[in-house]
Design a protein around this nucleic acid. Structure first.
Lengths: 204, 204, 204, 204
DNA sequence: ACATAATCGAGACGGTACGTCAGGTCTTTTT
DNA sequence: AAAAAGACCTGACGTACCGTCTCGATTATGT
């Protein structure tokens, strides 16, 4: 008979969790993901190793959670105003360009780049991690595009038979491709070009 | 003063190199990339560890070379006829669909999937590896698309001001996105849909 | 700034320590000292290598401790009666011969010979090891001789101005010399001859 | 059937042999015996490793030969006058003290100490090496003592029934003991004390 | 208010793999 | 044929982390 000890999460130390998040993010930024070890995270967080193993299944899971938490904190701080959607000025191409340019800037920001790359790579190899990565980090963003595209559809700017989920990938896929594989530099001009092509393809 | 001993590659054992390639590919297929250790590769190849460290900078480099060599061998075997280009039946969409469907099948083939994912992930994290990955594995394929798109341009089926390099990414990016991040299943239908959208966007 | 992590010896596993002792002694007896590797000791003891590196500075230190522990166990077992001194029958030469003959036998016993030679050799080269060797294994024995010689001095059988510490070396040095350097076979007769000469030289 | 290739020693390069001797002695002096590797000897001597393996069975053998050769060169240089024997002034004790004091000085000379200790230790563990060590380095010296003691016997200063070979060991053993095991500092006074005791024991 | 039970920091433990070093053999090219 | 050079297989080195485990020392309820 297996014990299957399930820790009592109501007793969990919030203090330790935060310390672990911070240590993980700090280490990834400083020495890179592969050299960020659980041992080092524990040491820097002033925490026993077991405390990490008790609550997370893998190093990637720790970093993923830390990253999500960071995102939430940042979002909560900057936007008490509410959920940031994609603006709707009526000009679909312009709206998409505005958002994708911001995405380009973010992807080129070293502070975001290192952990994001690490998580993406981990998710590519480990489906478990990948699923969480997509669900927690990627999907929320993509939903906003879908909403905006649906609005454009209702406004008659996009063909009615186009599947918005596919349309998002037409926009985001090329950007991701360049960024992940570093085929060519990821620029705002490139984002604009992608939007132009895609919007033309979606026109009624 | 740095020593930087450079081994004499003219004395290199071709026998060992091949054995290492085979061992690396075999192990990745059997136990997966992360559990493929240099120690195990050496043992299976009947080779000293030093022989690996002497000639390759990392596990990823070994696998990459092995994979490229495998591709070359396969190509040489199947196509004594010559370089496989993308067919040109005059119908751009149909031609692209044919090739991308084959790509979808390949990406869904477990035999190819494991090592390719591993290499892509390694390349995402390590620019060195990434550059080689792109140059050796990705680019040759992309060049074929570019050639076909240029032909279409000359035939007046594609807008003259469209940049073929960007056009390729519009096609390949979305596929890659789905495959790498596993957002949704990668199907032939999806490939067709992508082609349709992109070709429409490229039309004069 | 040096880290110099000192392990907490109160948490040390006595089980492992004993297993390591046994493995070390066993291996030295079976394959000899130079082919007794730390790796093999760890494997045979069912212990991680780090557990050895954590507590001992060198292979020689392990063997030395194991040998001393063995000696203590043997002594505790055979002599609950108490400390074995050198007998004092009143006849100094006879008493010394009795003990030195036993020493000769021990040195000729293959079970003792191999590890003792190994430790002696290690101590000759490494002063650290040598000091411990002398202190733990050699000195206790020599003290007994000194005590016996002092008694003989008080009994008027030895010149009052003779230094017992030097006298011991006159006895033990020649034996050690033959044994270590294998100049000639080490026999009981030789021991007797040495005693005779030395006792004559010490006579008042 | 074993090949047992015996190299043709008439073709041997005297140049290489000397270079190897020098390299071995230099390295032992600089980094100590254990860290003197065959690889390093070959590199410093500008010689292929095989050249060493071809002519010597072990590292110890190389050093031993180098050391003997050095001794011969030194002897040939200083004493064209002839073989250095032990002086015979008629005063046995004084003559022995003179020689043993010189020995003490030599043993305390760092330049001699390192290689001698290394060779002694190697010989203690490996009988092959030990035999050569005794024969080439130790015995020649001891023979001189034996000759001097026989002369003293003839002169009636030493008991006729004393075995000179044993007498030598009574003299040399204690010195060796102290030096090898580092029980106490090896001083000229100690040498004198040993001589006094031994000579008294040998008196008729 | 306190007993009791789980979490916590700490870190020793059995392991696996790392990347390096050297050993001794073998092959190639030079002398 | 021996020698210089050095690649090769082997095996051990000492280190870094892994994930598990035990050990007091805090908490943090729940009676």
């Amino acid at each position: 008979m297996v014990e299957n000890r399930v820790p009592d999460s109501s007793r969990r130390s919030e203090r330790s969790r935060r310390a672990i998040h911070d240590a993980a993010l700090g280490l990834v930024a400083e020495v890179g993901y592969p050299r960020t070890t659980i041992e080092a995270i524990a040491a820097r967080a002033g925490v026993g190793k077991q405390t990490i193993y008790r609550w997370w299944p893998s190093k990637a899971a720790v970093l993923l959670e830390a990253f999500v938490a960071l995102g939430e904190r940042t979002a909560a701080q900057s936007g008490a105003d509410g959920a940031q959607g994609i603006p709707d000025t009526g000009d679909l191409a312009a709206d998409l360009k505005a958002v994708l340019r911001a995405t380009v800037d973010e992807l080129n920001d070293p502070a975001f780049e290192a952990p994001t790359r690490a998580l993406a790579a981990a998710g590519i190899v480990d489906p478990q991690v990948g699923a969480e990565f997509v669900q927690k980090l990627l999907d929320p963003g993509l939903q906003l595009y879908i909403a905006r595209l649906r609005a454009a559809q209702r406004a008659g700017q996009v063909r009615a038979d186009a599947d918005p989920r596919i349309a998002v990938e037409l926009l985001v896929g090329p950007l991701t491709h360049r960024w992940l594989l570093r085929t060519l530099p990821l620029t705002r001009e490139y984002a604009d070009a992608v939007v132009d092509h895609v919007v033309r393809g979606l026109a009624p």
